[in-house]
């Protein structure tokens, strides 16, 4: 369970998150929607521990443990996963190499045994097949020369292999055509689990047709201004954000 209580955060002296509170229960899929500049991506960075952000007040607890005290890699080992809006390219490092380094680093941090090479290969191959990731992509340098859709698929593949307890999908639908969107959504849905929760950040309602949320939160000016069920997303699609933005102001 993820609990955010009265979070205030800023970057370069600029306040972005203003007293945000949010709870995502085990097994829940929560969606966050909001206009550009409402602080959605910042929230994902603050949860996952990107440097440069200053938390001035509030706390973020994952299963009761204070995330804010941990380094990004420690949070990852704790089960926090962020599917990036713009996944990074790492030239010269093959996808396979990267996956193995990450999986074993996390296992080691949790005191678990590292995967043997054949074991690891088997898992990756199976995961890749499910997501329609071709084998040759695994031998190429991570994300280098990948299309937008391939990069997003790679994010979901990483998520499936790292088996997080709390996954954030930051605008995972951006830049995807409808076929790619379906593949990615199927991949996410396959990972639904009573012990795993999701925070789906999106600008449009479209993604939520494929990844059906339990709850929908509207974010504006750094806080949650409205919470409802999945029908709230449809309402937003029809009426836009204007009403809610007004409410916050």
């Amino acid at each position: 369970m993820l609990e955010i209580r009265n979070l205030h955060a800023e970057i370069d002296g600029k306040k972005i998150i203003n007293g945000l509170s949010l709870t995502v229960n085990d097994g829940e899929i929560a969606a966050i929607m909001g206009p550009n500049g409402s602080g959605k991506s910042t929230l994902s960075y603050v949860i996952s521990g990107r440097e440069g952000y200053t938390v001035t007040d509030g706390e973020i607890l994952l299963d009761g443990a204070n995330l804010l005290e941990m380094d990004a890699s420690v949070r990852a080992a704790k089960g926090v996963f962020l599917a990036f809006q713009y996944p990074l390219e790492i030239p010269g490092v093959t996808t396979m190499t990267f996956l193995k380094a990450c999986m074993n680093a996390q296992r080691k941090a949790r005191g678990e045994a590292e995967f043997s090479t054949p074991d690891f290969m088997k898992r990756v191959r199976a995961g890749a097949e499910k997501l329609g990731v071709p084998q040759d992509m695994l031998r190429r340098a991570l994300n280098v020369g990948f299309s937008g859709g391939e990069k997003k698929r790679m994010e979901v593949l990483q998520m499936s292999l790292l088996e997080p307890t709390f996954a954030i999908l930051d605008e995972t639908d951006s830049g995807l055509d409808i076929d790619a969107l379906r593949i990615v959504a199927d991949g996410v849905n396959a990972l639904r689990d009573p012990k795993r929760s999701f925070l789906v950040i999106t600008h449009y309602q479209r993604l939520l047709d494929y990844i059906v949320p339990d709850t929908v939160h509207v974010m504006s000016k750094g806080r949650i201004v409205k919470t409802g069920g999945k029908e709230l997303a449809l309402e937003l699609e029809a009426n836009g954000y204007r009403d809610f933005v007004g409410e916050a102001a």
Binding site: A76, L88, I90, C102, A105
Partner: peptide, 30 residues
Amino acid sequence: ISEDQLFYCKQRGLSAEEATALIVNGFVRD
């Protein structure tokens, strides 16, 4: 080494040292 690359690696569970070693090895791979 870009901060973004480092954060990406750390978000996947690598420590700063591991991330740097990985990125440097990629840099010299050719």
